[in-house]
Design a binder for these strands. Structure first.
Lengths: 145, 145
DNA sequence: GGTTGCTTCTACAGCTACTGTAGATGTTAT
DNA sequence: ATAACATCTACAGTAGCTGTAGAAGCAACC
């Protein structure tokens, strides 16, 4: 059995965040030691690693909850999990496109900056144009009501 | 001059969010009409579109504030602007790298999920495996050339 | 056995970046 | 003139944490 501190180090996650996940039911109630400390097994570390990684991918906690519940009920169809993954893939692709154009613009600025002023900075123009094309059809998962 | 509602529609941004950005100084104080309504010019729409786009790319407001300062302050020393641009470029590149590998993961997940049941769906498995690989490579990702 | 020092406990406040609501007022169309 | 809608201010609430206070557990050294 592991302490909460060990689990936190193993998953690169704050102790408070683990307690928070328990509080909102994303992690099960941990059994306690004699002295009331939470005790964890390897399965808990795996589950938390999954949650943290999914968060890094940009999954909101509700989607993670859904994925975890799907894994708890292994006879269900994969369609729901697939839909979540596809939504995230869509997001990721759009972010990559946007970041690549921002990268290009930043590189151009650094180039021009060599021995001059930045009086012709075009960051806003470049990215506001791109923003229009991006925001027409799509919306961030996190920003949803 | 445009109303706040027009600007909101043009940038796919809530009216309250525009007022919030003004409040925290990300947008300038808008001049008011006779009846106290905020009035906006095209430049404000561009600026807001830039902010929204940068947010979608995952930049925190502080980073956006810094990027905006590049175009707000065209006479600031080249060294300062260069430092900001380089720091942001570094961020952008790291994000792109991370997102590209996440994209690969998601595509693999969708591929493996096709037409199966959860019992042979590897979504969660792949995600927790990847979590381990991310933790392992964390220092490599952070390393600078 | 006592003391130091770290970890963990609960409880709650604060953070970022919004989002929603109430109630008043401005604006526009019929 | 009245209805319908937009905008105003002010403030409360949300997600997903993160920090802090103050107490208690625990391990090590003297």
């Amino acid at each position: 059995m592991f302490t909460i501190g060990h689990v936190a180090r193993a998953t690169d996650c704050k102790v408070q965040t683990i307690r928070y996940y328990e509080q909102i039911g994303l992690l099960p109630q941990a059994p306690r030691s004699e002295g009331n400390r939470r005790l964890y097994a390897q399965a808990d570390i795996d589950r938390l690693a999954f949650i943290r990684h999914a968060r890094e991918l940009g999954f909101p906690l509700d989607a993670i909850r859904e994925l975890l519940s799907l894994s708890d009920d292994p006879n269900q169809s994969c369609a729901a999990a697939d839909a979540i993954a596809r939504r995230q893939l869509d997001q990721v692709e759009r972010r990559i496109t946007g970041l690549v154009s921002l990268k290009t613009e930043l590189m151009r600025m650094i180039e021009q900056c060599r021995g001059g002023k930045i009086s012709d900075c075009r960051v806003i123009e470049v990215l506001s144009d791109h923003a229009q094309c991006v925001t027409e059809n799509h919306q961030m998962t996190e920003a949803k009501p």
